[in-house]
Amino acid sequence: MEYFLELFLGGLTRGSIYALIALGYTMVYGIIQLINFAHGEIYMIGAFTALIVANVLTLNGMQGIAVLVIAAVAALVWSSAYGYTVEKIAYKPLRDAPRLSPLISAIGMSIFLQNYVLLAQTSDFVSFPSLIPDFAFMDPVAHIMSSAELVIVATTVVVMILLNLLIKYTRMGKAMRATAQDKTMAVLSGVNVNRVISTTFVIGSALAAVGGVLIASHIGQINFFIGFIAGIKAFTAAVLGGIGSIPGAALGGLVLGLTESFATGYVSSDYEDVFAFVLLVLILIFRPAGILGRSTTQKV
């Protein structure tokens, strides 16, 4: 029972991270129908930025929660900046190109960013300082759920709620929904689509950065390649939930996280990464619209 609970909470933690990254995929896909392959790299850069900033601060004698906060903010800022720039360079010039073009451009961008970090930083795994403190009140349950896991799940919940509010109630949120529904109509009713797209990339990137910082601090090491696998899995989560749907991303992340946790726990850990792919293939075959997605008929 305890093992089950441990796996469940582990799955919840994984799922939270996948959900945070999946949001970026889903939002971008909802608005420009592009799989932003570089999104995983944005997450990786978020983690690296946090690592660099945290290390510089710690080496200068700073300690405690302040390091976490500053590092997280830095990750947020820079990830967003990268997301914004990537869109301007690799996707914006291709708005009217055939569908294959932005997709190839996205893959190119993903490879570019991976190797950029590899060359500018290192190809090795680097250890990430554990920035999340151990809370005393978690001691009794520490053997099944660590403080870090609690922080990850809690942060994810808060972020999700904030995002939902933003999309429901702000002007920008409404513009985003309008653009996702019908770009031409949105333009006609005065929405600045370029701004909406940029904002979508910025928000998605910021969410990925949050995920990056949390998971890096939890797992304790990162390298330039972490974005790739995480990216595919988060995309799987997005598709699972129903691409384009924000609650779908959360749900998909959760389902994927739990599936992986139980599958590695009870079946085999050699094939940890295979489960996600298999799930992805299965969902695409049997329910391509995802759990929460509605299947629509393309207008002809």
């Binding site: 360079i89 690799a90 010039p93 291709l94 190109a97 073009s101 932005p102 190839i104 451009s105 893959i107 190119g108 961008m109 993903s110 490879i111 570019f112 960013l113 991976q114 190797n115 950029y116 590899l118 060359l119």
Partner: peptide, 14 residues
């Protein structure tokens, strides 16, 4: 090599 391949793909598409 790889970074140039990545850049090539983006630049070619653009």
């Amino acid at each position: 090599r790889m970074i140039l391949f990545g850049a090539t793909m983006v630049l070619m598409m653009v």
